[in-house]
Structure formats: C-alpha cells, structure tokens
Measured scan of single mutants.
Amino acid sequence: DKPVLAIQVLGTVKWFNVRNGYGFINRNDTKEDVFVHQTAIKRNNPRKFLRSVGDGETVEFDVVEGEKGAEATNVTGPGGVPVKGSRYAPNR
C-alpha cells in the first residue's frame, strides 16, 4: 500500500486524457498538481462507459505517495457523489 499523505482533499481537474486514462488535479489547499489515473476514480458517472473526470471539474480525493510523487486515489465528486466525467467519454 502507498503511504497516505492527505484525505478528503478538494481540487480542480487541470486536464484528463480519456484515451490514455490519466490526468492531473490541482489541489485547492496547496495548489499542487496531483497525478490521477482512471483506476483511482471510485464513483464514476453511471451514464459514462469509461471512468473519467472532466476538465475544470471539482473533485474530492485522498492523496498517496506514488512512485513519481503525489497521486490521487478514492476520487469522487464533492461529498462522495459520483464524478461528472469528461465530455469526451462515451455515454452508455
């Protein structure tokens, strides 16, 4: 398990590439950019086929120490709701 650095952090999605399945979230508290992989998205938009977060979307997440620095995990919308997802992700 990766060491946990912070829990229930709010941030804004800087960018997310649906095809490659990753992007970055900017933390509201430290203004640090945190890597996010599609496997870290815990509550996906049920209408979306692929797990994703949308550019500019506000999300809540935990921060863990990854191999290359801070990574987001347990990604949801604020308060644990499903994320909205990327407009580029296909609908079901």
Rank of each mutant, 00 (worst) to 15 (best):
residue 4 V to F: 10
residue 4 V to D: 07
residue 7 I to N: 10
residue 9 V to A: 13
residue 9 V to I: 11
residue 10 L to F: 05
residue 13 V to L: 14
residue 13 V to I: 08
residue 13 V to F: 04
residue 15 W to C: 11
residue 16 F to Y: 15
residue 16 F to C: 04
residue 18 V to D: 13
residue 20 N to Y: 10
residue 21 G to V: 09
residue 22 Y to H: 15
residue 23 G to S: 11
residue 28 N to D: 12
residue 29 D to N: 09
residue 30 T to N: 10
residue 30 T to A: 10
residue 34 V to G: 03
residue 36 V to F: 09
residue 36 V to G: 04
residue 44 N to V: 08
residue 44 N to Q: 09
residue 44 N to E: 07
residue 44 N to P: 15
residue 45 N to A: 08
residue 45 N to E: 04
residue 45 N to Q: 05
residue 45 N to S: 07
residue 46 P to M: 07
residue 46 P to V: 07
residue 46 P to K: 09
residue 46 P to F: 05
residue 47 R to W: 11
residue 47 R to N: 15
residue 47 R to S: 14
residue 47 R to V: 10
residue 48 K to Y: 04
residue 48 K to A: 06
residue 48 K to N: 07
residue 48 K to G: 06
residue 49 F to Q: 14
residue 49 F to G: 12
residue 49 F to W: 14
residue 50 L to W: 13
residue 50 L to S: 09
residue 51 R to V: 06
residue 51 R to D: 05
residue 51 R to P: 12
residue 51 R to C: 07
residue 51 R to W: 04
residue 51 R to H: 08
residue 52 S to C: 07
residue 52 S to G: 05
residue 52 S to D: 06
residue 52 S to Y: 02
residue 52 S to R: 03
residue 52 S to I: 02
residue 53 V to N: 01
residue 53 V to K: 02
residue 53 V to R: 00
residue 53 V to F: 05
residue 54 G to D: 13
residue 54 G to V: 05
residue 54 G to F: 03
residue 54 G to A: 15
residue 55 D to Q: 15
residue 55 D to P: 13
residue 56 G to K: 07
residue 57 E to S: 01
residue 57 E to C: 00
residue 57 E to N: 01
residue 57 E to L: 01
residue 57 E to R: 02
residue 57 E to I: 01
residue 57 E to W: 00
residue 57 E to G: 02
residue 57 E to H: 03
residue 57 E to T: 03
residue 58 T to A: 11
residue 59 V to P: 02
residue 59 V to Q: 01
residue 59 V to E: 01
residue 59 V to G: 01
residue 60 E to S: 09
residue 60 E to G: 04
residue 60 E to P: 00
residue 61 F to A: 01
residue 61 F to Q: 03
residue 61 F to D: 01
residue 61 F to N: 01
residue 61 F to W: 03
residue 62 D to Q: 03
residue 62 D to T: 10
residue 62 D to H: 01
residue 62 D to Y: 02
residue 62 D to A: 03
residue 63 V to R: 03
residue 63 V to E: 03
residue 63 V to I: 14
residue 63 V to P: 01
residue 63 V to F: 00
residue 64 V to R: 07
residue 64 V to M: 06
residue 64 V to E: 04
residue 64 V to D: 04
residue 65 E to L: 15
residue 65 E to T: 11
residue 65 E to S: 14
residue 66 G to D: 05
residue 66 G to S: 12
residue 66 G to M: 00
residue 67 E to V: 15
residue 67 E to C: 13
residue 67 E to I: 14
residue 68 K to D: 05
residue 68 K to W: 07
residue 68 K to C: 08
residue 69 G to M: 01
residue 70 A to K: 13
residue 70 A to G: 07
residue 70 A to D: 09
residue 71 E to F: 14
residue 72 A to F: 01
residue 73 T to P: 04
residue 73 T to G: 08
residue 74 N to K: 06
residue 74 N to M: 01
residue 75 V to Y: 01
residue 75 V to C: 02
residue 76 T to H: 03
residue 76 T to P: 00
residue 77 G to A: 06
residue 77 G to D: 00
residue 78 P to Q: 07
residue 78 P to R: 06
residue 78 P to V: 11
residue 78 P to F: 04
residue 78 P to E: 05
residue 79 G to D: 11
residue 79 G to V: 05
residue 80 G to D: 07
residue 80 G to T: 03
residue 80 G to W: 00
residue 80 G to M: 02
residue 81 V to A: 15
residue 81 V to F: 09
residue 81 V to Y: 09
residue 82 P to V: 05
residue 82 P to Q: 07
residue 83 V to M: 01
residue 83 V to R: 01
residue 83 V to S: 03
residue 84 K to H: 11
residue 84 K to W: 06
residue 84 K to I: 13
residue 85 G to L: 02
residue 85 G to W: 04
residue 86 S to R: 05
residue 86 S to K: 07
residue 86 S to T: 05
residue 87 R to P: 14
residue 87 R to A: 12
residue 87 R to V: 12
residue 88 Y to D: 06
residue 88 Y to E: 07
residue 88 Y to F: 15
residue 88 Y to C: 08
residue 90 P to E: 08
residue 90 P to D: 07
residue 91 N to A: 12
residue 91 N to M: 13
residue 91 N to D: 14
residue 91 N to K: 12
residue 92 R to W: 10
residue 92 R to E: 08
residue 92 R to T: 13
residue 92 R to G: 09
residue 92 R to F: 11
